[in-house]
Design a protein around this nucleic acid. Structure first.
Lengths: 206, 206, 206, 206
DNA sequence: GATGAATGAGTGTTCATTCAT
DNA sequence: GATGAATGAACACTCATTCAT
């Protein structure tokens, strides 16, 4: 990519990034159409290629950018020493919420990118993907859930929490919901699962 | 579509349907390629158009077919009078599992179709989609969860169950898992959520 | 390339080959435009790619075809045991003339191809090019010119003959001359050079 | 074109002219790329258009410039009263050689321009082309070849000389040969043809 | 004067669709 | 019914040209 992209007015950079994120998130790499981005963002076709060289180049750029940006927000919002799974998850969701305020389709794009099959692009994207996954995994791996000592059960609860959250994000972003509302709904589900999980195993106070 | 399709040998019909389901599920409507189906199924390009008129026609046909087939299995497997949410859900998942044995990509296709954005196709598909959703909604609406009397809370638990299940299906089918294994994993999660939900509110036996 | 090209009516094959030869000869590989061929030949754009896969594929096909066809005419017209340079050259020019009757731009194309710089294409074309050059070189290498015994001088005469002939072909084909007229002019120049060369060194009859 | 071009430092003018000559000579008008010139010469894209208005404008400028420059060298080097064809030709080649020292691609450019087919450019270029051709033709028309009295024969010899020379220039310049070496080779061929021609018709001294 | 970001028409290539066989 | 050759609109990408700085 052409580094001079960063000399553009910030607002234009973001408009281009958001346009790319949305079109890639909705259509996947192969079917994402440059023309759609042109229409969505109002920037000429030639300019995309001036800065990013190719559709693949653009894809890789927004992927790396997304991972960097998300990691940045995580680093300012997440307390790495937090050992409670639900507390940590809420912090993670706050970071994602802040990211979504600037880039509404970023999370959806990252989600979609995980299923991307075009090798031209997955090869180049692999490293950043691993970096992000490992970071999140490292944070969550050793968190605890009060009253749930069985590791397999704890992992299942972690997983259903993750699936529930990502399901909500997908559903709500697709229907254009407001970011704050999505975040509030996610927190409500986290709290629900937490109550269910923590109270469950508590031995009855006899 | 051309009704004579149903005069073809059953096996050929199913080969064509499965080919279409797989290609549509993996690529979405717009990027699904006729050539891919031709290669996957070994039936000439002209024939697809002879029977279905257009790619959109084919899409709509397999959509309607999928809904009908799923409703059929539900009608034989699901006990409509079952009022326990988790029991009903397990029955629903059994129906889906049986569907998947004949048409491995049918569920993924229906899931993907929900996010379909191509208006040429969503308009025509809406009605069948509504029929299915209403059927499922009607079944689940009045089901109960032992020990959870608050309606809002109950609905949240129902939703997280649904999201968890559909997340698992997507994840596992994408990685080519065997249908029975997927079904078993889903049942395990249903049981987990059930335990968590039912025990939660139970007042400690003093 | 798709071998079914050869199942087309011979006349259509030749129209396509001639169109490609002309456009490639006039513009070189990179600037030769598929649209120009479409316009010149009246065959849809998609079909070119159906048969030849890519512009490079088409280029390589017509190159190989040209070499084969020229070698074929040479094998029927040229007497390999002919040792007189001018006799052999006339035979070669007859072969080229016969080729030009079916494919007026074939010679110009081969000439232009020798200066081709696009590596995508030169790599694939090299072998056929070598085959042709070696054949012609082998034929001419040992030919004699009556009365010219000095090898360096003989080679110079051979070269100026070649340059004169190729200059005439280029000049006349560009201006759309009739093939027979070009051939007659070439023969006249060969005879002229022959006279000049053979009589030159003859010691004066004293 | 903008006359202020001539106010630029001479060295910059020549760099730009040589860049244009080379790129046009190698690629022809249509495929000659502005970017290639920019890279080759190190002058911004905008500036080319500031001075020459369009790619066609630049082409026409360098064409006219080339013709003027070549005519200028001819006027200082060629003795217009020279009536011997070969002497005159050697003088012409000397003029061309001197031109090539300052502008190595000028001759190749003029040669290539003769085959140019882009009408946008050939129309504007025609006049200068005619001027040059007529000048050369006028010089050569009445030259004699010792011992060759037949006009048709003489014209053929003149033509084969011209074709041989231009063939050598093309071949050697393409392979990057040094100008002096090319000039020497050309002189050798002129001498060869001269010998062949002059001795040919001489009646044996009895 | 000098730059290079920005534009959009044009190019090679793909793909849904038609149609002669 | 069944095939696949043939079409042309749409896509990714390039390049001459313009224009704000």
């Amino acid at each position: 990519m052409n580094e001079k992209f960063f000399d553009l007015p910030r607002e234009k950079q973001d408009r281009m990034i958001n346009g790319a994120l949305e079109v890639f998130a909705k259509n996947g790499f192969k079917h994402a159409s440059t023309d759609d981005m042109v229409k969505a963002v109002g920037v000429s076709k030639g300019l995309w290629f001036h800065y990013f060289g190719s559709k693949a180049g653009l894809y890789i750029f927004v992927y790396d950018y997304s991972v960097k940006y998300l990691l940045l927000e995580m680093s300012t919002v997440v307390d790495e020493s937090e050992k409670n799974f639900f507390e940590l998850t809420k912090q993670l969701e706050l970071a994602k919420n802040r990211v979504s305020r600037s880039y509404p389709y970023l999370l959806l794009f990252l989600e979609a990118a995980q299923n991307e099959e075009d090798e031209e692009v997955t090869a180049q994207t692999l490293e950043a993907q691993k970096t992000l996954q490992e970071k999140v995994f490292a944070l969550i791996k050793n968190t605890e859930i009060n009253g749930v000592d069985d590791r397999a059960r704890r992992d299942k609860i972690k997983k259903l929490t993750a699936l529930t959250i990502s399901g909500i994000i997908k559903e709500r972003t697709a229907s254009g919901a407001e970011q704050e509302a999505v975040y509030r709904e996610i927190k409500a589900y986290i709290e629900l699962i937490r109550e269910m999980a923590e109270r469950t195993e508590k031995p009855p106070i006899s």
